[in-house]
């Protein structure tokens, strides 16, 4: 019986779920072998389908994480590889995508809200509540003061141009849509993303 790589992967996945290399059909010999080797690191991992966050080829990736996604359990990404089923990348990744785990685990990932006071030379950790309350307050004060309800010709224009919003073209469509809704509802005109810079 010929077995394709993909079938092999599926069979393997079934085997991993059963936590025994014996499911590959090696019978007792397989069991003995399995007992003698270090467990395959992805054996206990949860596989999640995602996409490379970098360029717009949007290669399919499989993310392997520890933890079973149950509530209260923190999961940790341990491995990322190309999705062999994806029609565009067919399992391949370029030097950026192949190293994407180092972005997920970068020492420069931000962990806590930080705040820099006027004239200060450092960031200080603050709570989300502090940050979000203060930002909402600053927004409202500026909007209330500088909102333009009518232009010089008396036309209703309802715009707020003393605050701008650079959005990201790396967020999901859903996050982008909510960002759009909120920014426009406040009257912000200066709304842009990386599309044209």
């Amino acid at each position: 019986m010929g077995i394709t790589r993909r079938q092999f992967m599926r069979v393997s996945a079934a085997g991993l779920a059963a936590s025994t290399v014996g499911a590959l059909g090696f019978g007792d010999a397989g069991d003995a072998l399995a007992a003698g080797v270090r467990p395959f690191k992805l054996e206990r991992a949860t596989e999640t389908r995602n996409a490379c966050p970098y360029c717009a080829v949007s290669c399919g990736v499989l993310i392997y994480s520890l933890g079973d996604r149950s509530k209260n359990a923190r999961s940790e990404v341990i491995h990322v590889e190309g999705d062999p089923d994806h029609p565009v990348n067919r399992g391949t990744l370029c030097p950026r995508g192949a190293a994407v785990l180092d972005f997920v685990r970068s020492p420069n990932r931000l962990k806590y809200p930080m705040h820099r006071k006027a004239g200060s030379d450092k960031f200080e950790r603050v709570s989300w509540d502090f940050a979000m309350d203060r930002i909402a307050r600053l927004m409202k004060d500026d909007r209330d003061k500088n909102f333009v309800a009518k232009n010089r010709d008396g036309v209703t224009v309802n715009r707020w141009v003393s605050t701008g919003f650079f959005g990201t073209s790396s967020q999901s469509n859903e996050a982008g849509y909510l960002t759009y809704k909120l920014a426009r509802a406040t009257g912000i005109l200066g709304l842009e993303n990386q599309a044209r810079i």
Binding site: P53, A56, V57, T168, S169, S172, N173, G176, Q194
Partner: peptide, 10 residues
Amino acid sequence: LRGHSNVQGI
């Protein structure tokens, strides 16, 4: 070919 992963969507 475009740049960011979701520059088209955004």
